[in-house]
Design a protein around this nucleic acid. Sequence first.
DNA 1: CACAATTCAATTGCACACAACTAAATGGCC
DNA 2: GGCCATTTAGTTGTGTGCAATTGAATTGTG
Lengths: 167, 167
Amino acid sequence: MTPTPTPAAASAEWLRLDNQICFSLHAASRAFNSVYRVTLKELGLTYPQYLVMLVLWEEDELPVKKLGEHLRLDSGTLSPLLKRLEAAGLVRRERSARDERSVEVRLTEEGAALRERALQVPRRIAEATGLDPREINDLRERLDRLTETLDSAGLDPAALEETPGCR
Amino acid sequence: MTPTPTPAAASAEWLRLDNQICFSLHAASRAFNSVYRVTLKELGLTYPQYLVMLVLWEEDELPVKKLGEHLRLDSGTLSPLLKRLEAAGLVRRERSARDERSVEVRLTEEGAALRERALQVPRRIAEATGLDPREINDLRERLDRLTETLDSAGLDPAALEETPGCR
DNA sequence: CACAATTCAATTGCACACAACTAAATGGCC
DNA sequence: GGCCATTTAGTTGTGTGCAATTGAATTGTG
């Protein structure tokens, strides 16, 4: 099938393979998102909002900055998202007294209470994946390692230089 | 650590596990997206636009509908995206003569020529993942199976009913 | 032929995601 | 104390992603 063809043909082959892998990741990500959307609809949360609530259910109160580090999201994404959560009555935002640059995000009673209804979400998602906990855990570890590798590769500008064939 | 605790505690544990898995997927997806963004910048393409171009480099011409089936995207996403590609001079859109509901998308010469410069993209991405082709293929297959399972689970409204504990 | 159901692309509205920028507050240094 | 670099949220602009709707074209049925 691929008997070490010419370099150009090999690149073309890679372009097809790449086609497959980026399709796969893109599709899986959106399929997951879709399942979460359906499941979270009755809680009135979007998927990213659910992620924020997950952190808050563990931490109870923390500045936007810390939230962003947990979720790898910047203020451009979090500011409007948190405003919507505040408008929904699930969180409060208030300037820190100690450091007025910082905004502390904390759960309202309503927000804390929502956790009870959210307890059923993970099981539903796990069922939808059709995987057992061991497989889920394995996939999670792979994805974490992949993310770490991608981050370190992506943030390094030198990586672009040391790649021959750019010109 | 988890010696078959009370049901409520078990759900709480799942909520933490779920925390991990959805973080992982979310982060991996965006990390990938980020690497593609950097790599595609010099081609003047976004990641979804690159996906569209990949299809067109294989198919050369096809209606928006088919494109959407390949990519699992609807016209709400594709219409503005294709307009941008057209504005960039990479594709042409024209009403089909046979069926005037349909819009045929085809590459311009410039769009076809861009393929040459895109040939180096897959290798860069593969390098950034730090995985060998076998591992990439394995991951791809897992993701494809997962997507298939998620889609069939998500589109079935009965799945919500047969889940006890919703009330 | 007429009419209803279907198909297809486009549009609208909402919610991320992220780059780039702004503005306020803080901390370090002289 | 005064000044400057840094930190922190927020804002703006662009580009998806998707649900819901619109409108034109086509197909099926009587």
